[in-house]
Simulated scan of single mutants.
Amino acid sequence: MKPSGVQHEVIWLQSEAPLKPKAGQCCNGCGVCCAASPCPVSRLFLWQWRGSCRALEWHAQARQYRCGMLLRPAHYLSVLPVFLEPILRYWVRRSIAADVACDSTVEVDADISA
């Protein structure tokens, strides 16, 4: 029997991505939080309210997911003046607490054999 209020949804991530840390542990670039739902930055600037964030970028060499709005905001916001990029990056880093700690309460079942 499924507990009431529990949602199950499938998110697709690279198999080389690190496993999701527990909430409160150091962020490791697993991508689960952004693949599960868009953050406030995505909602505000990309007008995305559900689904995997379209600014979620896979970086194969590092084997980590990264926020495209943090790394290259002008790619996602074509009207952003170049001189505002550093300011937006700073604001995004603070808003999503990038590389600080996992704040996602999403529970992951990595069993893909089903």
Rank of each mutant, 00 (worst) to 15 (best):
M1I: 04
K2C: 11
K2Q: 14
K2D: 14
P3M: 01
G5W: 07
G5L: 14
Q7Y: 04
Q7H: 06
H8Y: 04
H8T: 01
E9C: 15
I11L: 14
W12F: 00
W12H: 03
L13T: 06
Q14D: 08
Q14C: 01
S15T: 10
S15R: 01
E16A: 01
E16S: 04
E16C: 04
E16W: 01
A17C: 07
A17G: 05
L19H: 10
K22S: 15
K22E: 13
G24E: 12
Q25H: 10
C30A: 11
V32L: 02
V32E: 12
V32S: 07
C33P: 12
C33T: 08
C34W: 00
A35D: 02
S37D: 10
C39L: 11
C39N: 11
C39M: 08
V41W: 03
V41L: 10
R43A: 14
L44Q: 14
L44P: 02
L44T: 11
L46I: 06
W47N: 14
G51S: 05
R54W: 04
R54N: 13
L56I: 11
A62N: 05
A62Q: 07
A62Y: 04
R63L: 07
R63S: 15
Q64K: 10
G68K: 10
M69I: 04
M69K: 03
L70M: 11
P73E: 06
P73F: 13
A74V: 09
L77M: 11
S78W: 00
S78R: 08
V79K: 07
V82L: 08
E85W: 03
E85F: 02
P86C: 00
I87C: 05
I87Q: 13
L88S: 06
R89Q: 07
R93S: 08
R93P: 05
S95M: 08
A98E: 12
V100L: 13
V100D: 10
C102A: 13
D103K: 07
S104A: 08
V106W: 01
E107H: 09
V108A: 12
V108H: 03
D109R: 01
D109T: 09
A110F: 04
D111N: 09
I112E: 06
